[in-house]
Nucleic acid binder design. Structure first.
Length: 292
DNA sequence: GGTGCGATCGCCT
DNA sequence: GGCGATCGCACCG
């Protein structure tokens, strides 16, 4: 009897989920560079969610084939920072609107020896507690009294990945509204690539709030991470490694290549032409090497 | 395109 | 009491 109800409920949710995905294929507003988004959405609606009935709750029985689950976050800090590139951050607002943006720039903060990390030397405070929680835990902290930054904890004691910039994929106008709300009236309209090209800008554009601190990116209902079915992995040759931003005062740790971004992507917040050049010369010398 | 500077307040020492 | 994992704007070339 109870089983019959659960199966019936699963079926209803299955149908609703499928219809919702199809509805997404008609974005309400799209920019000129919205073509990749349409391909992403198309491939999503082509994917049939598989219903697993071995859990009693119909909610948890629907495993999302696109959303990244707990195991993804169980990587070393540097690996996770690179793995984030190309993935899609989704923010579901209270009115149901889903904002989507691709991660194009991250930084690794290792904890321990890493003097630039809030958790340097294993220092644990009320503010940075999320850095010590399980991989996938969101760490949101206020900076300069007026902004927020969003990190995700990784493997490693006190280690976390800072999200530095995103490429807006859908909900551009909502993002523009959220950003404009914090700017002077009469300021010029932001271009798409300016909506999320900085760690605090992306928090504004996606309405990431302080109360998201310590929540789990793998299971939260208001924010999550998806893989892009069109681009499973980003080739290493497209990832630039460069020094981090805003940590100049931390000696040798200021110059370590712990920032990662997609080469040539227009939404990256700060380019490092030297790192890009070195990378290019490195790859050309690599190609001249013979395999022994 | 790049650089310099002020805003503003929670957090930690 | 001092400082920041930033941003926007003015100004320069």
């Amino acid at each position: 009897m109870v089983w019959g109800k659960n199966i019936a409920l699963c079926f209803v949710i299955f149908i609703m989920t499928t219809r919702k995905r199809k509805n997404l294929s008609l974005p309400q507003s799209e920019s000129a560079d919205g073509e990749p988004l349409k391909r992403l959405i198309q491939s999503q609606s082509d994917t049939n969610p598989v219903g697993h009935h071995h859990h009693l709750s119909p909610y948890f029985s629907m495993k999302d084939p696109v959303r990244l689950s707990d195991s993804f976050f169980h990587q070393s800090c540097v690996d996770l920072a690179k793995a984030f590139l190309g993935k899609v951050l989704v923010r579901k607002l209270t009115d149901g609107t889903e904002l989507r943006a691709r991660v194009v720039e991250t930084e690794a903060y290792l904890g321990g020896e890493d003097k630039a990390s809030h958790s340097a030397g294993g220092k644990r405070t009320e503010r940075n507690t999320a850095m010590f929680m399980k991989p996938g835990t969101i760490y949101v902290y206020p900076i300069y009294g007026i902004y927020l930054c969003m990190n995700i904890s990784s493997q490693g004691e006190g280690a976390a990945v800072l999200l530095r910039s995103l490429e807006p994929l859908s909900g551009h106008d909502v993002m523009r509204g959220l950003r404009a709300a914090k700017r002077k009236a009469g300021a010029k309209t932001l271009k798409d690539k300016e909506l999320c090209n900085g760690p605090s800008k992306l928090c504004q554009a996606l309405d990431v709030q302080r109360c998201f601190d310590r929540r789990d990116l793998a299971t939260d209902t208001e924010v999550w991470l998806e893989k892009d079915p069109e681009r499973e992995t980003v080739p290493a040759g497209e990832v630039v490694s460069a020094h981090r931003i805003g940590v100049e005062s931390h000696g040798e740790w200021a110059t370590k290549p712990l920032r990662f971004y997609l080469r040539g992507h227009p939404c990256v917040s700060v380019l490092n032409r030297d790192a890009e050049r070195q990378m290019h010369s490195q790859s050309s010398t690599d190609s001249q090497k013979t395999v022994s």
